[in-house]
């Protein structure tokens, strides 16, 4: 049975003072975070409460729930203030010195001291690492959300004219995005009854064999639905890469600019453009 809860209970005030001094010493340029003392006190209270249940090795157990909750809040608020994960973990680790000192004072013999210190050290390590884990998880959530948002943002299908759709592609085409792009284009073709779709790749940074293959797939799928595709927005460098790589775009109609593609699409749909007044009239 560990004596840690007893030590914490008896020496709480001393540990807290020592710990705060430790934290103040190691505080960086930003200075100490607000309500540091309350946080430290809450942490010690939770530590004493949770360790009273006897389990000092696995912080995943339900008796550590409140402690984990406290650390999650701490990690989130610290991250918001711009602290690095190691600074947050350092907050927990800095408790080691005062806690070990208290254990040393309370221990009856050297074996007991070594055992208790080892236990406390392991416990604080896992608690400190937990804050890092939470920090990381928060980051991952943000990345995932941004990815999903980008996916939504980057696949608009625009109706340019009766029976003419435009699909401005932005960003690199991977298999997953091609799937989304293809689906939204085909859905829109059904919805609007369009006969011509212009795929504009001005915003696609590079076209390699894979991207070309994805483009051709989209074109083939649209053709199966009865719509013709025009690929537009091919920049000079892209044209060069396509030829150098030996990527065949097949018999797909390609145009340098969206304007050219649109005028071709209008012509094919039987429209003609007439300017009624001279430009400088």
């Amino acid at each position: 049975m560990s004596k840690l809860p007893d030590v914490l209970k008896r020496r709480e005030a001393g540990i807290l003072t020592e710990w705060l001094r430790e934290l103040k010493q190691s505080a960086g340029l930003r200075g100490l975070p607000p309500n540091l003392e309350e946080t430290c006190r809450a942490f010690l209270v939770q530590l004493a409460q949770a360790s009273r249940n006897g389990n000092l090795t696995d912080i995943g157990k339900p008796e550590w729930n409140e402690m984990r909750h406290l650390l999650e809040e701490l990690s989130v608020s610290r991250a918001r203030q711009g602290d690095t994960p190691s600074e947050t973990a350092g907050f927990v680790f800095s408790l080691k010195q005062p806690l070990f000192a208290a254990i040393r004072d309370e221990a009856k013999n050297i074996e007991e001291m070594a055992g208790e210190t080892w236990m406390a050290s392991r416990l604080l390590d896992s608690l400190g690492l937990y804050t890092t884990e939470v920090h990381q998880k928060g980051r991952e959530d943000i990345i995932q959300r941004q990815q999903a948002e980008m996916m939504e943002l980057s696949t608009p299908v625009v109706r340019l004219w009766e029976g003419i759709l435009a699909l401005p592609l932005i960003g690199t085409l991977d298999s997953e995005r091609t799937q989304t792009v293809m689906e939204s284009l085909l859905e829109k073709i059904v919805e609007t009854g369009a006969a011509i779709a212009i795929i504009d790749i001005t915003g696609v940074p590079t076209v390699d064999t894979l991207v070309a293959q994805h483009l051709l797939k989209t074109v083939a799928a649209a053709r199966l639905m009865g719509a013709d595709c025009i690929i537009s927005g091919i920049r000079p460098q892209i044209a060069q890469t396509i030829v150098h790589l030996g990527v065949g775009l097949g018999d797909v109609i390609t145009k340098a600019s969206m304007a050219d593609a649109f005028s071709l699409a209008l012509k094919r749909s039987g429209y003609s453009l007439i300017r009624h007044q001279p430009e400088n009239a």
Partner: peptide, 19 residues
């Protein structure tokens, strides 16, 4: 061939059968 559904068109292309 008329009225192909989007899902069918995608499947055929993925199967390598662009008809």
């Amino acid at each position: 061939v008329v009225g192909m559904r989007p899902a069918v068109a995608i499947t055929l292309v993925e199967l390598g059968l662009p008809l």
